[in-house]
Amino acid sequence: MENNSIYDIAVIGGGPAGMTAAIYASRAGLKTIVLEADAPGGKLVKTFAIENWPGAKTVNGADLAWSMYEQTTALGPEFIFAEVIDVEDHGMLKSVLCRDGSSYKARAVIIASGTVERLMNIPGEQEMIGKGISFCAVCDSAFYKNEDVIIVGGGNSALEESVYLTRVVKSVTIVIRRDVFRADEVIQNKVLANDKIRIIKSKLPQEVLIKDGKVAGLKVKDAKTNELTDIYAKGIFPYIGNDPVTGFAEKLGVTDENGYVIADENMQTKVKGIYGAGDVCRKFLRQIVTAVNDGAIAVQVAGRYIETLQES
């Protein structure tokens, strides 16, 4: 169903960048719509404690996300829960299409859709998400009390979550593709000193083992000898990086080879009226504070662009 209203700004994504954009846009009197596929707050919601948000020594991620959501919606933008699947550029107007069939027209679009956890892309993975495969140790560790679990990945997140999991699980097996960790030395030392953690190097995940509809383990292949081994565990936590959520923006040609939005210091992409903000952009640092920074800038610049449209 097509919404006949024309919005000044359509914000794709309701995380810190998107909500900041909506706050600034609404306060500037711009007719704004936010489209979010999941819980408002994005990755904030999955973060237990945040200690680098100025003004709060420590704050729970979900609390901060809800507080941003209430502040945003109180200012009047439409906040719609729908997954965006396509954005079309028609010059002075853009169309945003959603999976539920709804569509919206806006003069400017701010892409603030963030990133999602990267999948291993092996058989059994997709159907076991939520049934033994989890991307959030903080969220789901309680389901694996006194059980064996596997962490896939050798970066900081993988190792930090491994140590976190040892508070509740029986054992953690870290599976890494290479024979060295990418993580910082400090966290590596914590892992090496932890009796509950074992490390399996140079192994490539091949298949999620399933028994009675639940995860039973992981089949891995040795990177050098190709020998296959089964590792038994009730839970698997892949921590192998993140991918930007920009499939809907492919036709616009505003993303790099990895799918990240290429935006300049004013958050402007190469397409007039299309902006990027937050983790979805190609950038050096992805934090809540950098996301809200992007959201504010994107709206200021989009506002000026909309003024020029009206003048012309």
């Binding site: 919601v45 999955k46 237990f48 979900a62 809800w66 903080v138 309680a142």
Partner: peptide
Amino acid sequence: FATWCGPCKMLGR
């Protein structure tokens, strides 16, 4: 729900 779960808190609201 669980007391430590972010999405649970938001759904509660």
